[in-house]
Design a binder for these strands. Structure first.
Lengths: 190, 190
DNA sequence: CCCTTTCCCGAACAATCTGTTCAGGAACGG
DNA sequence: CCGTTCCTGAACAGATTGTTCGGGAAAGGG
């Protein structure tokens, strides 16, 4: 397990591997990509690959962690509930080539799970302030449902041609979820 | 490609194969099951397997089609929007051992996609009558979002211990989605 | 009950992929 | 400049996939 930070060769190698995987995923989808593919595309020795990553999956994990950090930094505080939505769709729209490959049907379930976790944290933070006086339905279930909605919308968006704008996607999500959330999380206030 | 209907041997073989896959999925999850595993578990010849199914995936497809037919038959007309929900959760609860394996995290994305299609049809039929006067947001997006919610709830339900009852699950889904749907699909009526 | 059709068997095989090992050469950083 | 660390690449054992083929066995119609 080479030292990541210090050596330039290490950085170079790891970057090449991750770049190779993402490129190949865009061409064949996650499942179809093989470790040998990555090795050839990255143009490195076979043993080199396995000293850095135990698995094809772990290459993906590292990439997703990077993506998660990026998403987390860019998050702005929008208005009201589900304020993160528009920013999310806009970001996905910008990072089209990458994120769409990850989220689309060709991305593989590993990605889905990872992204679902990421989103769940965002949603939970978003809903927590309002959830104080709402023991009616478990917050966990609400978060799960909301994340499911967003993820489903993101996936179809990623897979289909870009007919809809980020704003339209966010609008659809809001209109579908906001009323129910309002009723659930502030039953007395209204 | 053997004749399915006529010959008893064919029925026997196919049944054994499908049973083997589902059993193995319950033990290892879909991804981890190999064609060789199925062959050994079903106790059939290797060539026999490949004359019936080209793939591990296609074994699953057939099983899911059967499940889909079953679900479709059992569907009752409940009250109002999302009336299928309770029946869905109840069915999943009954067929626990099978459906939970299919829908859970160990099920594999192939299952998810297939089930998503199944649910999409149900939801679309459910929403169609109300969608006449609602050009505001594309029905496709609404259906996608709703299916995403239900699927997400089903998945966490399947993966976690059975703390919640089918009624509670359905209640959560309804409360989250129904208000938004009402506003979306009948903007004038209300 | 018989006989033709149809299916099953299972070993053998080529092809692909995985993950590991190791000795020698190359690049790195201090 | 020099010791440390990394990369190489071939070679390998093991697993998996999907195909082929010559019997042998079961099925079901007549």
């Amino acid at each position: 397990m080479p030292d990541v930070a210090a050596d330039r060769r290490v950085r170079r190698t790891r970057a090449a591997i991750q770049r190779a995987l993402l490129t190949l995923m865009a061409e064949k989808g996650y499942e179809a990509v093989t470790a040998t593919d990555i090795i050839e595309r990255a143009d490195i020795g076979r043993s080199t690959f396995y000293t850095h990553f135990s698995d094809k999956q772990h290459v993906l994990y590292d990439s997703l962690d990077d993506l998660g950090d990026f998403l987390r930094d860019q998050r702005p505080g929008h208005d009201g509930v589900l304020g993160f939505g528009l920013a999310l769709f806009e970001h996905v729209d910008e990072q089209r080539d990458l994120v769409r490959v990850l989220l689309g049907r060709r991305g593989g379930h590993v990605v889905q799970d990872r992204v679902a976790h990421l989103l769940a944290e965002l949603v939970r933070e978003d809903l927590a302030p309002l959830a104080a006086a709402a023991p009616d339905v478990p917050l966990d279930l609400v978060v799960t449902g909301v994340v499911g909605t967003y993820l489903a919308l993101l996936r179809t968006w990623a897979d289909s041609g870009t007919t809809w704008t980020p704003a339209e996607m966010d609008d659809a999500a809001r209109r579908l979820l906001a009323p129910g959330l309002a009723a659930l999380l502030a039953p007395v206030t209204a």
